[in-house]
Design a protein around this nucleic acid. Structure first.
Lengths: 333, 333
DNA sequence: AAAATAATTGCAACCGGTTGCAAAAGACTT
DNA sequence: AAGTCTTTTGCAACCGGTTGCAATTATTTT
């Protein structure tokens, strides 16, 4: 049913190459020819088949967007930004939802079958080896929200989680808390590990502050809530650094359920600054992760890779900042 | 770099057709041949190019997943379900984020260029004509969360919004509210219109109940909050049917900001029953939209269309149910 | 106005697969 | 062992485009 190059060529009474050329920019076509072809194409309602052309050009403009974070509301923002950024660059997101069952090899195979031009992995919980699998299969990869290192094996864009852990610790120290907890996300996530590491390192200078840490099973409301309930049942700390915002909101809920107040009885600081954190009935003090910059930079990097696939892997690190709201006691003066 | 059919053929010492046949099921190949080819393929790390094959078979297994709801957290659940359901059926979601700027024609063109096998439109706010544009371009379409009608022009899967409006009204009546408001989503959305219609129809039987209605600009926290603040500033009703859950949560926030209590001073009932509605610190009474069934049914329908593209358009309507939580006063006994 | 140069066009091969058809190979009869 | 019926295999054309190359046409130069 859909019209082809040939149909247009016949209608315009020219060669197929001529038609092809009017639809590929940079090709040599006279204005007269172009107009003639465009007229015929318009009459037929022709639009070129991107997949067929990919066969010869070797480019599909398809980008695999791979994530396992379909339960953290912040990722709706992330997907929104990624899809828009890709669309603006005339690229198309082929979405891959990594469930617990999917094995890495099969998603690699799948994306290869569709000859995606590149892969964006968006996750702070996937093991680092994961994105390497794509690279090893010869695809340009950018790991957004990954763990930046000084000698990265794939491109990584994200924040310095160690530093953000320190930042959280400093914030809590400055507010005079003497008994502080780290309520982390899943223990296996690099983001959790790094944040804890920085957190403890900063507090190592403060021998008079009591510090403990534990982990929730996921970056989720329910996991945060459950872990906080557990903590509350037995001698909780005065303030916690929650693994991320949604987890912290779960913790807030737990605190409320126990009829304790925030920040009166317990303080919380989250991480991400998702839209919800600013909701007036949540009003979470948090560390802002500059999502828009991370996404924009990831896509920019991807665009660079498409031009030069041999570009050396690089880490791009963005700074975080404290967003002061209502879940920590005020700064001591 | 990636290996081709030909490479495998040479390595196995057979014809290209033979290789092709071992990778298409239902083709005639002897076991001996199949094993031989598979061995060669494995040695080379070959995997067939889905796009090239789509050229001759006319099927890409690509499904356009089109939405404009990238700001409503419920859609993360929706995307999660859709992507998984598609993956299970060996279909790939090509995500299209409809922003205010994108015109329908361009997304139609885009999806045609990628020869998607079908299009799933997931939105309760898009005008009905939108999905028709895809159908007119010859693609199988399912509009999930659309407006079901008795003579649909495309397949529609969703709830009966008129009935859900009635259900909300009945619920509020049963609780003895004498002054009731409809705090709708965007006025142009079919879902808003239908819900209001049902709501008013049901209340038409109760002349002694005062009824008013107004609209928020979007199904969003901020829009709900703003509209509720406006309403609170001047003689608010006793209870409201909020356009959807996020919007209702925004309204709850506004109520809290004015130091009023829920359900003491004002009652709220939402619609959707998104995960967040069950969060203990929100605890929103709402009408559950059976998302999982809507999604599953949409994909099922899409699969049917792929088999029989001439299938007549049908509406599939799912029932909603009240989820009783803490934002309405208890039922009178 | 002829020669030299540049821009445009069509031919034909190719991208990586699939598939109808006829030839070749196997399996079964008798 | 020859003859018949199936199954398997390869050939070659095709899917809808792109592109190097040579031929053609237009433009400039002298």
């Amino acid at each position: 049913m859909p019209k082809t190059l040939k149909d247009v060529a016949i209608r315009a009474g020219v060669s197929r190459s001529a038609v092809s050329r009017t639809f590929t920019d940079g090709a040599s076509v006279s204005d007269k020819m172009r107009r003639r072809v465009q007229k015929a194409a318009a009459e037929l309602g022709y639009s070129p088949n991107a997949l067929a052309s990919s066969l010869t050009t070797g480019r599909t403009k398809l980008i695999g967007l791979v994530s396992n974070n379909f339960h953290n509301p912040i990722f709706l923002e992330v997907f929104d930004r990624f899809t828009r950024a890709l669309q603006e660059k005339d690229l198309r997101p082929l979405l891959v939802n990594l469930t617990d069952e999917t094995d890495p090899a099969s998603s690699v195979r799948m994306l290869r079958q569709y000859s995606v031009d590149g892969v964006v992995v968006a996750s702070s919980t996937l093991p680092p080896g994961f994105s390497k699998a794509f690279r090893d299969a010869g695809m340009p990869v950018v790991h957004a929200f990954g763990r930046p290192t000084s000698s990265p094996e794939v491109h990584v864009v994200g924040i310095d989680n160690i530093e953000s852990g320190r930042m959280a610790a400093r914030t809590l120290i400055a507010r005079g808390y003497g008994d502080i907890g780290f309520l982390g996300g899943p223990e296996t996530a690099t983001s959790t590990q790094d944040r804890l590491h920085g957190f403890l390192a900063e507090l190592a200078n403060c021998p008079d502050i009591r510090v403990r840490h534990s982990f929730a099973e996921a970056y989720s409301f329910e996991a945060g809530r459950r872990e906080m309930l557990r903590l509350l049942a037995d001698d909780p700390a005065q303030a916690y650094f929650g693994g991320d915002d949604v987890l912290s909101i779960g913790a807030l809920s737990a605190i409320g359920e126990c009829n304790l107040t925030v920040p009166g009885d317990i303080g919380i600081i989250g991480l991400n600054d998702m839209e919800m954190a600013a909701w007036q009935n949540i009003n979470l003090t948090t560390i802002r992760q500059p999502i828009r910059h991370i996404v924009a930079s990831s896509i920019e990097l991807m665009a660079e890779m498409l031009k030069d696939p041999d570009r050396l892997p690089e880490s791009r690190i963005f700074a975080c900042e404290i967003v002061e709201r209502g879940t920590l006691r005020p700064l001591k003066v």
